[in-house]
Design a protein around this nucleic acid. Sequence first.
DNA 1: CGCTCGTGCTGAATCGGATTAGCTGAGACT
DNA 2: AGTCTCAGCTAATCCGATTCAGCACGAGCG
Lengths: 350, 350
Amino acid sequence: MPTPRVTLLDVARRAGVSRTTASFVMAGRTDMRISAEAEHRVLHAARELNYRPNLMARSLRTKLTRTIGLVSDTIASEAFAGELIRGSFSTALLHQHLLFVGETEGDDTVETQLVQDMLDRGVDGFVYASMYTRPARPPAILRGHRFVLLNCVAEDQRLPAVLPDERGAGRAAAGLLLDAGHRDRIFLVGETPDGVYAARERRAGVEEALARAGGALAGTVECLWWPEPAYEAVREFFGDGARASALICLNDRIAFGVYQAAAEAGLTVPDDVSVVSFDDSHLASWLRPALTSVAIPHFELGRTAVELLLADVPAHDVHPVPMPVRERGSVAPPRPARASGHAGADIHSG
Amino acid sequence: MPTPRVTLLDVARRAGVSRTTASFVMAGRTDMRISAEAEHRVLHAARELNYRPNLMARSLRTKLTRTIGLVSDTIASEAFAGELIRGSFSTALLHQHLLFVGETEGDDTVETQLVQDMLDRGVDGFVYASMYTRPARPPAILRGHRFVLLNCVAEDQRLPAVLPDERGAGRAAAGLLLDAGHRDRIFLVGETPDGVYAARERRAGVEEALARAGGALAGTVECLWWPEPAYEAVREFFGDGARASALICLNDRIAFGVYQAAAEAGLTVPDDVSVVSFDDSHLASWLRPALTSVAIPHFELGRTAVELLLADVPAHDVHPVPMPVRERGSVAPPRPARASGHAGADIHSG
DNA sequence: CGCTCGTGCTGAATCGGATTAGCTGAGACT
DNA sequence: AGTCTCAGCTAATCCGATTCAGCACGAGCG
């Protein structure tokens, strides 16, 4: 059962050449002259013997393993962490590389140990990822090795990094509403602490787009980014008699809570209120009506990071990845304003 | 910057011993006599030089890499695929192993290629996983290598496999309702095609528990395992005037649809209908009232598989992993039957 | 006093490739 | 005829561990 390994020497012998020649042929190197005749014999022998080079032996010499490490603070999350891994893996595979994964749980000691373990196994480079966009400086042990930051904003902007274009996403979300005819009474739902990159940028994007159209946010319903708090906050909002033309929820979980609060207030989405959101989790397509959401391009993020890592020339800047809009059924033109002087004004100001 | 590697020879020299001796000390082998004195010198030198053995060189000789491969049909899914990877990774790490991940998308050619790629890199074993429990026979290329099936039922029951105890989960779900006092008018929601392991087993478990208590399923509401179809089917069910005491949803997505249909029918969960479900996705805790669900133990599945894979003595049987119940707010005692002879009968038959 | 035996250690081979240095023989050129 | 060039190939070394096969030395023994 334990088939004796076919080595390069076996191939060489069968082809009637030296190990050296066989090696050069297998490596496809042209800097050494080898006759078409000999090359063919080697290739043929390799095929016949079903030769597979021993990568460990090769690595010992070359210091290259065609292997990369994905070290992340969190592997699992309710979002599609899997998509990120998938994007990384499939891109690695495309380049004939394999992918180690590892989680640090944010512990620096574990992190250093993990990177060391991967280094011991000769990984050619690292994707240093955070599941949620946050500021982070790569650990010291990474110095001198090739790596790409994923979903982290480093102080040093010249470090290679890949980030979702949250600001663009904010603009896109607002744009969706603007295009549908909304202008006033657009509210943001969800708190936006300065330290949270996604929150800050999404909000900035929204404000930017609104301002560009001569409008502005009508206000913010502050709440944590979870269904329950959002539900509570928006119920109160509606209870106070507030009227909204559209709600921009900072993520889908918030939108979920918003849907419930709206239903309870007797409001129909999207006829009475339009709702747009961020993340495009599965929830978005399960909601009724299905939720229009700006997606986090997990797959693309992974893909881009690995692409950058494996590129011939190392990157030295941050690469924003566009966040695609998934239009569904939660946006409609605003209800025509009821007998009020504002309607006319709105039309003229457009 | 490219620090010259510290090799075993450096350590040996500094300790004033041969490479052989240093090797034995580092490997902690006792089958060769080495004086405490020499051992101490080697250890000391290694520490001083910050020696790290070159695993590639070691592997070349030993054929062991302290590395395992997780090959799965699907890495990403709406369920916590990440938890499965996490369980596998952290257990591997516990045993000083690192984890390769790979996805085949169910393609046999890709699968064989991927396994081969991992084999080329010397993995010590495989976790062959399916994200959804299904029948599967391990690919031929795995023959002769160590592996554990995860979430797959092989025809050959003597292959090492790890499976969620779906039947037990079915029993647990029914037990929850039984304990709350439900007996009659318990319906199953979701189709149960014979080919789908989880469906078949969950249903069997439910029926088993019910039968044991002298009851039986009042019926099944057939529908696909998604919110929308479930919503439609249950709406129709209620529309036909059917009354249910409790609904056992075959997954959380179904329960989500059921919640909506119930709300529309003017029924309150759990006062009018109790609902239990399977999977314990995040959805379960976001629903109002929060959904009682039997969890798929993704982390445990990964953990168990790797534990089995790395065990000293290879396993040769299937290992069921219990599915824990997450009790939340969707189960309550049944509404007392309204003026009808049945109420008394129910009580007496208990 | 010579022999065996156990202790503590070492030299050299090995794993399977990549790579450097150089060799051989034929034709071109002087 | 002698020298150069160049195509085409090979021997030997290296990468950094593990491991096999002994070797030297002192103690114990008859």
